[in-house]
Design a protein around this nucleic acid. Structure first.
Lengths: 107, 107
DNA sequence: TCCACGATTTAACAACTATTGAAATAATAG
DNA sequence: CTATTATTTCAATAGTTGTTAAATCGTGGA
C-alpha cells in the first residue's frame, strides 16, 4: 500500500489543468509515450512551463522518461495511479459488500 | 463523462493530507457517514480547520452532508470519485487492450 | 426565553504554486 | 568545431492555500 505522502503528491500533481491534460494525453498514448516537443505543440504550452510540469509529474512517480536522439519521450506510469486509486478506496464501506458502491471493488 | 474543471476540483480537494484522511475515514464509514465532531476528535483537527476542509470537499462534490439534531453528518459521495478515475483512464493505451495496464479497465 | 453546545464564518498571515521570458545546458548533424 | 534543435534552469511576480483565534449561527433542552 502506498504511503499517504506519496498519494498526496500524486493527487497534487494531477490537480492542475495543464498537468491533467499532459497525463491524459500520455495515458491515451500508452507505453510508447510522446516527445516533449510534440506534447508542447499539441497542448499549446511553452517549453519552460511544460518542463516545470514534467518535473512535478515525474517527482510524483506518474511519468517515466527516456531519451531517443534529441528527443525525450515521456510516458504514463500506470502503477502509481492504480496505487492511488487503491489507497482511496481501501476498506471501503467498512468491508460491507452490500453497501459498497465502488464498481470493481470487492470491499 | 465529467468535465475537466470538476475533475481538477476533486483531485485538488483530495491532494491535502488532512482532507485525504477525512475522505478515507468517510469511505471506510460508508453511507451512514460520521458527525463533524467525531471526525475532529478522531483526526485531531480543530473544528474551524475541519469546517474549512469540509467546504472544499463538498464543493468538489466528494462529500454529502445531512443534519441530525445538532450534529451534521458527512458521508463520502462515491460517484464523483468513480467519475474522476474514469476520466483519468479514459481511452487508455489508445484502446489497445493488450498494452493496457489498468486492472479492471477494458480499454 | 435563555443557555449550552455543535458547527461555521471571518479576517489575517505565512507558506506554497504557476507562469513567463531569458539564459544555460545537452545532443546531434554537417 | 560550429550551428541547430530540444529541453531545462533561473529569477521575478502574481495568485492560491492552510491555519489560527475570535465572532457568529443554529439547534435543542431547562
Amino acid at each position: 500500500m502506498m504511503k499517504p505522502a506519496q498519494v498526496v503528491r500524486a493527487l497534487s500533481a494531477l490537480a492542475q489543468p495543464t498537468r491533467l491534460a499532459i497525463y491524459r494525453l500520455l495515458v491515451e498514448r500508452g507505453p510508447e509515450g510522446m516527445a516533449a516537443g510534440q506534447i508542447a505543440e499539441k497542448l499549446k504550452v511553452s517549453p519552460a512551463t511544460l518542463s516545470f510540469h514534467f518535473k512535478t509529474l515525474s517527482h510524483a512517480g506518474l511519468l517515466e522518461s527516456r531519451q531517443d536522439g534529441r528527443f525525450i519521450y515521456y510516458a504514463a506510469n500506470f502503477a502509481v495511479m492504480n496505487g492511488m486509486v487503491d489507497y482511496l478506496t481501501e476498506n471501503c464501506c467498512g468491508g460491507n459488500a452490500d453497501a459498497c458502491k465502488v464498481p470493481g471493488k470487492k470491499c
